[in-house]
Amino acid sequence: MKILGKITILLCGSLLLFFTSDFPDFGDANSPASLHLSPYFIEHTLEDTAVPNVVTSVLADYRGYDTMFETTVILTAGLACFLLLRIPKRAVKNRYYLHEPTGVTLRFEGDKYPQESDVFKRIDSSWVPYDIIINFTCRLLIHFIQIFALYVVAHGHHSPGGGFQGGVVLGASVILFAISGNLRAAIKRFGEKTAALFSATGVFIYAGTAALCMVLGENFIDYAALAPILGSDRIMARSHGIFIVEIGVAVAVMAVMIWIYYNLSSAGKQDEGL
């Protein structure tokens, strides 16, 4: 079986290597891929949408359908992780508590366990001691990470960035909080239900904006129809429409990243984790 796989790979690789000689040279400005559709996008993006970053305008406006179903795919992936891994919290048998005045670790079995207080502190079964340096540094950093993420979402029209990147950075800030402290603290602040709701809300914002254009009497995903609502001319309406859609993408991507992390890091229990 292994020999067969290696032979297949050698054959495929040598065939592909042989045919690379037919490809246009690297950096060739007149290669077929650069001649047909992209000159239109580059030359008309300013007069059509007033967005200088061509990638953003193509992503959310010219090829809006693509991105809409891309966010749907991400939502489906988050849902698939949830359905595969999630098990009810009651399945957790043992709980470990640290009695802080004496430093003794206690194990509780069954349903009876103490309330969390200053005396009893819940710890994970695979507990690593609390590290004040990592915790403090991460708490300082998280604000700036989140502000930077909002900047990335809002400034995607004029610089590299946009909904996908900003959403992932926002999600990464919550994941950093969960890693530096513990998972329960993160779930208390950004719960599982919130994550599920946000991921659906993001897709709804995108699809709803697109459908609103149709209600206003123009094509699906033609943001120029939003001009009377936004109170601007038709070109700026497309720019603002791209911004609304980017917010939807950012919310969906953020929530799905956090949701997948919660399920993966706690093996579905959402109680003890990495």
Partner: peptide, 9 residues
Amino acid sequence: PLPHVLMLT
């Protein structure tokens, strides 16, 4: 920019 858009998603 077209390949960038496709690959970003």
